[in-house]
């Protein structure tokens, strides 16, 4: 199976985020990491390849810094990488990212494309589904298991509140992967060494530009959400905080 994995670089979970001067985006001088479900998507692709053979290709759209997620993926075992490199990709809506991916892979023949089920920064939960529609492929979302089956694959979709559903579908297809579908591996030292010699294709914005359209969604303003609930903050050194909280739990919350 030939599998493409879309991997996005997003601000690290713990990174303190600040607004930039435009007020419509964050300051970019923070630390980054791979979008969590995308890491699971890569792991799943590697496992499928180990079972059935084939190739794992990783793709990202982002500035130079985004190369890091491709390097990590190659070190974990991906065979090659595609980097759509331009700072402008950060401002693209999901449809344009999907258009750019579709254009960048039009010479390739994948059996499966994996994306994460949503990004930690935008959280659109759309890129994979849109990509499937642009390619004319079937898709399934929030996937927790993938098996080869007669004439295609059988996947397990997660539904709300602990429910699941199996779906049989033909290939090629797009799947959006949920965190927790498998256990992540670490890159080995050998893997990190080998990664340096693996093929990396750079794609400039100009190459995919003809396939893009204007963003239909515009972020006018980004801001810290207004608090609606009154939270009583307990402050002080840990020992004092502990004493005050225990008092409250006893006298106000009445659970002690």
């Amino acid at each position: 199976m030939k599998i493409l994995v879309c991997m996005k670089q997003v601000p690290q979970k713990d990174a303190p985020l600040k607004l930039n001067e435009s007020g419509a985006w964050i300051r970019e001088d923070v630390s980054y990491e791979v979008n969590e479900p995308d890491a699971y998507a890569l792991e799943e692709a590697l496992r499928q390849k180990e079972k059935h053979g084939g190739e794992v290709v990783v793709i990202t759209a982002g500035p130079a810094r985004a190369l890091q997620v491709l390097r990590e993926a190659l070190a974990k075992g991906a065979d090659r990488a595609i980097h759509l490199e331009d700072a402008a990709f950060v401002t693209f809506d999901a449809a344009n990212i999907a258009r750019a991916f579709a254009a960048a892979i039009k010479e390739e023949k994948f059996d499966l494309i994996f994306t994460g089920l949503q990004s930690d920064d935008f959280g659109f939960a759309q890129t994979g589904v849109i990509l499937a529609e642009l390619l004319g492929w079937p898709h399934a979302t929030i996937i927790m298991q993938i098996e080869k089956a007669e004439g295609g694959i059988k996947v397990k979709r997660e539904l709300e509140a602990g429910y699941f559903q199996h779906v049989d579908m033909p290939l090629p297809a797009v799947l959006t992967i949920q965190s927790g579908i498998n256990k992540l591996r670490y890159a080995t030292l050998i893997g990190i060494k080998q990664a340096k010699n693996k093929p990396l294709r750079k794609v400039a914005l100009a190459e995919v530009q003809p396939s893009l359209a204007a963003n239909q969604l515009n972020i006018e303003r980004l801001y810290v959400p207004q608090k609606t609930k009154k939270t009583e903050m307990i402050e002080g050194p840990p020992a004092d905080v502990a004493r005050k909280l225990a008092e409250k739990l006893k006298n106000e919350v009445r659970v002690l």
């Binding site: 609930k229 939270t231 905080v241 502990a242 909280l245 225990a246």
Partner: peptide, 29 residues
């Protein structure tokens, strides 16, 4: 964002807050 739904909030390191809290709760009980 958890503080947007919290009634009581403690900004701090849980590894420093929990041990004395366990002791205080035992005392209070």
């Amino acid at each position: 964002p958890i503080f947007e739904v919290a009634d009581i909030g403690i900004v701090g390191n849980l590894f420093e807050v929990i041990p004395p809290l366990v002791e205080e709760i035992k005392k209070a009980k």
